[in-house]
Design a protein around this nucleic acid. Sequence first.
DNA 1: GTATGCAACCCTGTATACAAGACCCGCCGA
DNA 2: TCGGCGGGTCTTGTATACAGGGTTGCATAC
Lengths: 231, 231
Amino acid sequence: MTDLAPSKAEQVHARLKEEIELGELAPGASLSELWLVERTGASRTPVREALRRLAAEGLVDLVPRQGARVSRVSARSVRDLFEFRTLLEPAAVRQATEAAGADPGLHREFAAMRDAFAGTLDQAPSTARSRSFYELADRFDWAVIRAARNEHLRRTIAELRPHTARLRNLSHLDPQRVEVSVGEHLAVCDALLAGDADGAAAALVEHLQRSVETIFRNLAGSPWEDLDLLG
Amino acid sequence: MTDLAPSKAEQVHARLKEEIELGELAPGASLSELWLVERTGASRTPVREALRRLAAEGLVDLVPRQGARVSRVSARSVRDLFEFRTLLEPAAVRQATEAAGADPGLHREFAAMRDAFAGTLDQAPSTARSRSFYELADRFDWAVIRAARNEHLRRTIAELRPHTARLRNLSHLDPQRVEVSVGEHLAVCDALLAGDADGAAAALVEHLQRSVETIFRNLAGSPWEDLDLLG
DNA sequence: GTATGCAACCCTGTATACAAGACCCGCCGA
DNA sequence: TCGGCGGGTCTTGTATACAGGGTTGCATAC
């Protein structure tokens, strides 16, 4: 309604964020303002603004008088990320459980997602299925974030999302993992729908634990394996 | 060594941040770029950059095509802030406790702070004592943040600090509160120094609980009382 | 052959000019 | 008298010019 034209700064920000998330801009890649100007067609002002925003989100490192680089991935950064998510997301899912208990519409929304997850298991394993699963998982994450009532919690978790997505995209998708991950999501959904906040939180912690293990396993076979582990 | 000259953007950012923290720029105050240019002597580019950074930190609200305002304080924002701190800071103090147990130098540092807190009780109640106590409490908070080993946790807690400080400055200092607060800090210190992570976390939660109660009590007598409670 | 100093290039930090949207106030019509 | 419309002004969004620091690579001296 308000903005039929998102600002160029926002466009550049969104594009760079996506490219970093997808791994098209590799960790450590240098991002000169001039190069970005050529690539995006915007001028230096919006490019600078986008870079600063990305730096605030931790997706690029900004060295004064020297420029920007895509932030690196290290074993430590992965550990920190998942440890932090393990602190935040159970709290969010607890709040979401309470919210779903109080709001029938929200409850139905989560129920629909539970069914969608269950439906995933009927499809034969394939990259397409992995894709649609990850999309669904993403929508679920967003639903939980939105249902959390604490503004700081929402913002902070939302800011972590691109980091997680990047890790998933840097490691190669593991079709095996999808089966298990669907089950973990179902467990979270079931507990949430039953109003069992503790159960939902515990199931989520379980999921995060498995996820980080998978990422470490898969990262070991990726080109980024030896990128930097100086954390 | 590297920067004998902090960039103007950084200077403007630091100045605005401090003024917002101190309440000199009241919640809701409009921050036109041109006005800031006049006040700071910098040009619009660094001013804009500072505003964007402050917006990312939640200290100003940025409405596209319309400008920036100092972010408002509502009952809900206070609740959200302390609820979030209650989630994060116990984790940080746990990590700090472990760190102090492993690093004698760090342990001594915290021991010195404990003694400094104890020394505060010998002084007669006065604004000067309140001031020096809050300074000390601030240094303690920073020490805990630094000792935490998780990067995300550190950054996020550090980002919340200005919000808390602003609330303290918007409500009037309560000399009564200092006595109690010193005791709470001593409890956290003692547990931390004893290697009792759970105890330190619990003491900190207790402190946060009392703090938010005090703030609500004091805010009720301040000019901001009716500012907006639409949270 | 290696180390050191210098110079040219490139980059970011800053200032400012230009474009375009948003708001306010006054006018006109019902 | 009230509501809608239009122009003017102010504000932000964007582009670009200018200045200063950093880096790199080469030349020269040891």
